[in-house]
């Protein structure tokens, strides 16, 4: 299986503090990969490096063989990576429907953005259907409950037709049923060929969802492999799972 993303030898420091030390991993095409680790382990930093918010000191990030480092965030987004945020970032003035239209705009030619084509509105409807937010179509997105906002954010990200979807703690604020539903949705997306990279603290959710999991601690990757392998890895148990127990 080929890789959608190759994240190689990344070092990232902020004023002398090393946020990532020589972190490398690959994301297989059409897979769901997770990143776990204690707070401050560098998981969100990885997202910020991939999406172009940070410029790492060294290393390389390739999407389907194309180097991403040095590209402006919007170019990386257009290349096929979309993300959600740990603390949701929706557009405060916009309805759910606006979000669905807006996120498809960059892929349409300039004049095509004047009046939404049927293709665009159909995809917008489909996204809302998929994430179960059709009922709140005309509501201002930020006025919705937290869990629903997360769904809107994911729908916005997926509406961009990404090749790789980055989700930062998607089940935070959701109850068990909602989390289970989300897992089904994400498995469905994988079935359509989408690659997904998730940061999440909810171990139950992650173990049942991910094909592969990378474990971060103090800016280093300390383990990586199938969920079952991770669970029995002594380094992981010591560094992370051990703390919880």
């Amino acid at each position: 299986m080929s890789n959608v993303l190759e994240f190689r030898g990344i070092n990232q420091s902020f004023g002398g503090i090393k946020a990532l030390s020589d972190v490398s991993f690959d994301l297989a095409k059409g897979s769901i990969t997770g990143a776990i680790g204690p707070n401050g382990a560098g998981k969100t930093t990885i997202f910020n490096v991939i999406t172009g918010a940070y410029r790492p000191d060294s290393g390389s990030v390739k999407l389907n063989g194309q180097e991403l480092l040095g590209l402006a965030p919007y170019r990386i987004a257009r290349a096929g990576i979309s993300r959600t945020f740990q603390n949701i970032r929706l557009f405060p003035s916009m309805t759910v429907w606006d979000h669905m239209l807006l996120s498809q705009a960059p892929r349409t030619p300039m004049l095509g953005r004047l009046i939404p084509a049927r293709k665009v509105t159909e995809r917008a409807e489909e996204m809302m259907e998929l994430f179960g937010i059709t009922g709140v179509r005309d509501r201002i997105a930020v006025s919705l409950p937290y869990g629903v906002q997360r769904k809107v954010e994911m729908a916005r990200a997926y509406a961009m037709e990404p090749q790789l979807l980055l989700l930062d703690e998607p089940v935070a604020g959701m109850n068990h049923d909602e989390a289970d539903h989300l897992r089904e949705v994400l498995l469905g997306l994988r079935g359509r060929g989408l690659s997904i990279f998730i940061i999440e603290h909810d171990m139950r959710f992650m173990m049942a969802l991910c094909d592969e999991i990378h474990v971060m601690n103090y800016g280093r990757k300390i383990a990586g492999g199938k969920p079952s392998e991770i669970q029995s890895d002594p380094a992981v148990i010591a560094a992370y799972l051990g703390e919880d127990a």
Partner: peptide
């Protein structure tokens, strides 16, 4: 008229949250 198009959504997105606008692929 422009206000009713997606062009205007992009303008509002820049006002709302420039960083998030960039991450949905907009050249702000």
């Amino acid at each position: 008229v422009t206000e009713r198009t997606r062009w205007w959504l992009e303008i509002r997105a820049v006002n709302d949250d420039e960083l998030a606008a960039g991450l949905v692929g907009m050249n702000t």
